[in-house]
Design a protein around this nucleic acid. Sequence first.
DNA 1: ATGTCTCCTAAGAGGAGA
Length: 261
Amino acid sequence: MKIATWNVNSIKVRLDHVLEWMDRHQPSVLCLQELKCETARFPVEAFLEAGYEPLVAGQKAYNGVALLGRTTGKDVTVGIPGFEDVQQRAIAATFEGVRVMSLYCPNGESLTSEKYAYKLKWFEALQHYLSDTLKTHERLVVAGDFNVAPEDRDIHDPKAWQGEVLCSDAERAAFSALLDLGLKDSFRLFEQLEAQYSWWHYRVNAFKRNMGLRIDHVLTSQAMASACVACSIDREPRAKERPSDHAPVMAEFSGLSSPSS
DNA sequence: ATGTCTCCTAAGAGGAGA
């Protein structure tokens, strides 16, 4: 079973990239973020033709998340239960006995912004949600754009970024609190090359100079971490013409017994 | 390096968000 995440920065603009990537890599589930597309306008047919069933929580212009499954996702949950939010940032469903979540965590803008306060509140609500989810789902995969670079090695220039949004102490503590629930950062389960990032600014030739941050993650419950055999970031789509500013991240799982009932 | 990309409103650029 392969579970991937990709912030596509507009599904309309990136549809061809996404279809091509899915054809090549055959994920069991692809979690998408930043659809920038109303649910009713999501290109459902194109994915059905490609053999994937879309579950979509979209809105006009901003945000928006989706799950694209080879199989039908069950028990769909949109948003964070109990957390009122007009911004579409979370969707979850169960595929082949595995609970999969696609998250677009708030960016925060800057440490003094109201959006930053919202980001921290959102993470607090997420922590409670994941805590509850783990009680009922031993097999959980939480994938998405977390907008947090967890450690200095996840930043091309840690000194330049120190204390900035995406890597401030409070944001890292919020991310760390998710790991404290028992979730694992699947990328770090394996030996990786240095300077591996999932996002590069569109400006200043950031991708070519590998001036990036690792802010897109696949978190796994203990049971899924035990079955995880690989996790990698695919830089290839970021090198294409008219790319998303993010690269897809994919984790592979093996040896999972078939789900009970 | 107020740089780039995508969206919106609204009828031509400019602002929001990242």
